[in-house]
Nucleic acid binder design. Structure first.
Length: 503
RNA sequence: GGCCCGUUCGUCUAGGGGUUAGGACGCCAGGUUUUCAUCCUGGUAGCACGGGUUCGAAUCCCGUACGGGCUACCA
């Protein structure tokens, strides 16, 4: 049987980086096994829907290259792929479970539920569950007489809850954790069909996974605790359950807890694939795309956060990941998000990408008002690419390619500059402002002069660099001079010397 | 609180009864460079703790501690 996996996000906001990794693992398994990667939108909670979130998810997946084989807008024989459009499908299964005695109608109001929880809390039961012990004290089709209950159901009142069997161990195999067991006495009677007729996650999930012939469920660890409910429902329906794999969570770089939406701003990096404008909060969350990451680098970093190929390979294309991927090698424990390593991956990709291919993404993140010839920018890219991490760094780290230095490293200038050197500077100026055939030729010319006059390279060259760049950093000095062009070099030269004299 | 899952360098991880506990990021030092970066070489640093089992435990078992998740008519 062909493998079918799904990535099933809820369109309640932007796609979190943990979700990206979940999508990636699903994608990799599908591709490795020649299976199908499905996108399913889990929008059963109408109150939490966020406009634009679904489009954001799809755009993000496409930017990352994780394009679904089936899904809303992608076609497929098992649609619709949006749960809200499948609304009519779910009730019959809930009703079947009721008919079989595995579920029941409940009529408790939210107030009654709150009251029950408060009472239980007062009795010393922490976060009381609607379970076997409690259900006989509540208003439902199990406690009310049939006539009354039927009347309420006919009036469209109530919801449907799963009826947990008494004291039964429910086990399932998690492909990374092996056997996991829950006792039904610890499990609550989960709501499966809501007042508005929508299913909850639990029902929608098993119905759709079954109908869509999903073979492997790969999802975050937050679902591990409710998997016993799902397993039980498959059993109630007489359906074969898919294989389960629960992924360890991605944790904050430091401190406690899982990586959250706000950690991006807190630690200074993106936690979303693309920029997200939160209208409700009137806030903008940064994205890896806008931050200047190569999606391939992001994926490479993410794939290793919770999985390894079993050897020392780290730099991998998606094709290579696909070859090597295996659920068995997924790690059990949570992984901290390490910004440094993420940057390092991007740098590796940057260095391996031809300059011409970098042109477009670098232009895309250039600040407004900065316009350059493509040829010029490509030269800058070539010179700068092994000293930057992200696309935006070409501008910030290589600012001297776009405007003359506004200030100079005073300390370094004072250490080296003396006005007696002016005669030599005049001579060097002539060399660097006349056209040279190459950086190498110019370098030889200047160095020959310094040697002839018995001057120190360690004094003149750094000063020359500071004239051009403002500081002791950047690519080869003579490459910079050639790239800048004699006119610009002359201007910077004169301006800098003037400043040097006053220091 | 209850239930479930987990714990190897600071971080990501390999190893899964006998290893000098391996790699990568970071960091440090040296080399290369006029500088920064790249690159090369070297270094730093780890099996949470306590009991078992065993000739022998990082590895198996139990407990403790710590971390994580769940505990909604959210997903």
């Amino acid at each position: 049987m062909s493998i079918r996996v799904r990535f099933a996000p809820s369109p309640t906001g932007p796609l979190h980086i943990g979700g990206v990794r979940t999508a990636l693992y699903n994608y990799l398994l599908a591709k490795k096994e020649g299976g199908t990667f499905i996108l399913r939108i889990e929008d059963t909670d109408q109150t939490r829907l966020v406009p634009g979130a679904e489009d954001y998810i799809k755009e993000s997946l496409e930017w990352l290259g994780l394009t679904p084989d089936e899904g809303p807008g992608y076609g497929g024989d098992y649609g619709p792929y949006r749960q809200s459009e499948r609304k009519g499908l779910y009730a019959q299964y809930a009703q079947q479970m009721v008919a079989d005695g595995n579920a029941y109608h409940a009529f408790d109001t939210p107030e009654e539920l709150t009251k029950m929880r408060e009472e239980q809390q007062a009795l010393g039961h922490h976060s009381a569950k609607y379970d076997a012990r409690i259900r006989m004290q509540m208003r439902n089709s199990l406690t009310l007489d049939k006539e009354e209950s039927d009347k309420l159901i006919a009036a469209g009142e109530g919801i449907i809850r799963l009826k947990m069997p008494h004291d039964e161990d429910v086990s399932f195999v998690d492909l990374v954790r092996e056997k996991v067991t829950f006792n039904t006495n610890q499990l609550d009677d989960k709501v499966i069909l809501k007042k508005d007729g929508m299913p909850t996650y639990h029902l929608a999930n098993i119905v759709d996974d079954h109908l869509m012939k999903i073979t492997h469920v790969i999802r975050g660890e937050e679902w591990l605790s409710s998997t016993a409910h799902h397993v039980l429902m498959y059993r109630f329906m007489g359906w074969e359950a898919p294989h389960f794999t629960h992924l360890p969570l991605i944790l904050k770089p430091t401190g406690k807890g899982k990586l959250s939406k706000r950690d991006g701003a807190k630690f200074g990096f993106a936690v979303f694939p693309m920029e997200w404008h939160d209208k409700k909060e009137d806030a903008v969350y940064q994205g890896f795309k806008e931050d200047g990451f190569d999606p391939k680098a992001l994926l490479n970093f993410l794939v290793l956060l919770g999985w390894n190929p079993g050897n020392d390979e780290e730099l991998m294309t998606v094709e290579r990941m696909t070859e090597l991927f295996s659920l068995a090698k997924i790690v059990k424990s949570g992984a901290r998000f390490d910004v440094d390593k993420c940057n390092w991956f991007n740098q590796q990709y940057l260095m391996a990408t031809p300059d011409a291919d970098l042109l477009a993404p670098v232009k895309a993140v250039m600040p407004e008002g900065i316009t350059t010839e493509d040829n010029y920018l490509q030269t800058v890219i070539g010179l700068m690419k092994e000293r930057v991490y992200k696309y935006g760094d070409f501008y910030t780290e290589g600012s001297f390619f776009f405007s003359a230095p506004a200030e100079y490293d005073e300390k370094q200038v004072k250490k080296r500059y003396k006005s007696e050197q002016d005669e030599h500077f005049a001579a060097i100026r002539t060399m660097v402002t006349s056209s040279s055939e190459s950086a190498e030729a110019l370098a030889n010319q200047v160095k020959a002069y310094l040697k002839e006059k018995e001057l120190k390279m360690g004094v003149y060259l750094p000063l020359l660099r500071i004239m051009m760049c403002g500081a002791l950093k950047g690519p080869d000095l003579f490459d910079i001079i050639i790239t800048l062009g004699s006119e610009e070099v002359a201007q910077r030269y004169d301006k800098a010397l003037e400043v040097f004299k006053k220091l």
